[in-house]
Amino acid sequence: MLNQGFVTITAKRLRDLEEAYEELAALEAHGVDNWSGYSEALICASGEECEICG
């Protein structure tokens, strides 16, 4: 529901997004972004095909 640059989401979805952001920030703070599969995981998360996800 895009309206002049704003979206409407449920409170639960907002909490889920905030929790996911905090989890990613903590993982990156502890070096997961130096993991050899990190860039491949980002490719997969973007919807592109990767070697693991197909």
Rank of each mutant, 00 (worst) to 15 (best):
L2H: 07
L2R: 07
N3Q: 01
N3T: 09
N3V: 05
Q4S: 15
F6T: 11
F6W: 04
F6S: 03
V7K: 00
T8A: 05
T8D: 02
T8H: 06
T10Y: 06
T10P: 04
A11C: 03
K12P: 00
K12V: 08
K12S: 05
L14N: 09
D16C: 03
D16E: 14
D16Y: 00
L17A: 12
E18F: 05
E18A: 07
E19G: 00
A20P: 00
A20K: 12
Y21M: 11
Y21R: 13
Y21L: 10
Y21F: 05
E22I: 09
E22D: 11
E23S: 05
E23Y: 09
E23K: 09
E23L: 07
E23R: 08
L24Y: 08
L24N: 10
L24S: 11
L24R: 09
A25N: 12
A26I: 10
A26Q: 08
A26L: 05
L27A: 14
E28D: 05
E28T: 12
A29L: 00
A29M: 02
A29N: 02
H30T: 06
G31S: 13
V32N: 12
V32C: 03
N34F: 08
N34R: 15
W35Q: 14
W35I: 06
W35K: 14
W35N: 15
W35F: 13
W35D: 15
S36R: 02
G37P: 01
Y38P: 07
Y38K: 02
Y38A: 06
S39M: 13
S39Q: 15
E40I: 08
E40R: 11
E40D: 14
A41M: 11
L42H: 04
L42F: 07
L42G: 09
C44Q: 01
C44D: 07
A45Y: 06
A45T: 04
A45W: 07
A45K: 03
S46N: 07
S46Q: 05
S46L: 08
G47H: 12
G47V: 15
E48S: 14
E48K: 14
E48D: 13
E48T: 13
C50Y: 01
E51Q: 12
I52F: 01
I52G: 05
C53Y: 02
C53Q: 03
C53D: 12
